[in-house]
Design a protein around this nucleic acid. Sequence first.
DNA 1: TGTGATAATAAGCAACGCTTACTATCACAT
DNA 2: ATGTGATAGTAAGCGTTGCTTATTATCACA
Lengths: 142, 142
Amino acid sequence: MRFGEDTFGFLLSDTARLLRRAFEQSVQNTPITLAQARALVYLARNEGMRQVDLAELLEIQPMTLARLIDQLAAESLVERRQDPADRRAYRLYLTDKAAAHLDVIAKVADGLRDRALDGISDEDREQVMVVLRRIRQNLAPR
Amino acid sequence: MRFGEDTFGFLLSDTARLLRRAFEQSVQNTPITLAQARALVYLARNEGMRQVDLAELLEIQPMTLARLIDQLAAESLVERRQDPADRRAYRLYLTDKAAAHLDVIAKVADGLRDRALDGISDEDREQVMVVLRRIRQNLAPR
DNA sequence: TGTGATAATAAGCAACGCTTACTATCACAT
DNA sequence: ATGTGATAGTAAGCGTTGCTTATTATCACA
C-alpha cells in the first residue's frame, strides 16, 4: 500500500472540512455563511476597498466576490459606494448592522478555536500558525 | 478591531482551499476529482467495505457517498458487488483500472506535499501532523 | 483621440455536501 | 411465525462556494 495512515493533504483538508462544518452549525440561526464571514472580517480590516482588491486579498475571482457582496448587500451588511475617482469601481463599506454580526463571528471563532486547539500547548499553537502561514505562502498562486 | 492578522480558522481553511486548488489543477487532465481521490484512497486501504462504512470513514453522508460511487463506477474504477450476507448492501472493490489512477494520485500528492512543505524542517512537519491530528480529533462529531 | 487594460457583472457550469422521503431487507422480540 | 423497528442504499432536490467566458463601461496613456 502506498498510502500511509494519514496523507498530509487529506489530514489538512479533513481538518478544514470539520472546522467548516462546526462553524456552519454554530451560525445556523444567522443568515451568514462562512465565505460571507470571511469577506466581512477582511473588509472590516480595510473598509473602503474596491471589489477587485478584496477579491485579491481573499484569493477568489472577482466574479465570485461580486455575488458574495450581492448577498451581503441584500442583508444590508455591506454598502457599495461609487468610487469618486473611478466610475467603474465601487468602494465597500460595512453598515452599522454589520457590527453585531462581526461580534457573533468573533464569538463563534473564539469558541471554535478553543475547541479545536484543546489540549495543545501555547508553543505548539504558535508553531502551527507559523508553519501554516508558510504552507499558505508556498501554495499561493504564483 | 477584534480580528488580528490571521485568525486560526481562516488560516487553516485558506491553506486547505489553496491545497485543493493546486490539486485540482494537477489532475485537470484526469477524470478524477478530489473527493473521488479521497474515496479511492480510503477504499484502497480497506477493499470490500460496505458503502455505509466507507461513508462513516470519510465522514460524509451515505447519500453523498452513493453519488461519489456512481461516478467512480461510471469510470469503471470501483465495482459494487452484492454482499453475500445482506441483500440490502454492496461491497466495494477497486478495479484493475483503479491502480493507474492511484499511482497518479500518489504522485500528485507527493508533489503537492513537497511544494507545500518546502522550507519546513522535518521536525516541524512531524509536529504539524501531530497537532493537526489532534485538532481533527477535537473537531470530530461527538 | 483611439487602443488596450481594468472594474464589475451576466450567464452558466462544476464539485461537494446536505436533507427528506422511499424501498428493500434484516434482526429480533413477542 | 410474524410483525415492528432499524438499517443499506437511492431518488429528488437544494445550497454553498468556486470557476470560466463574455459583455459593458470606463480609464490610462501613447
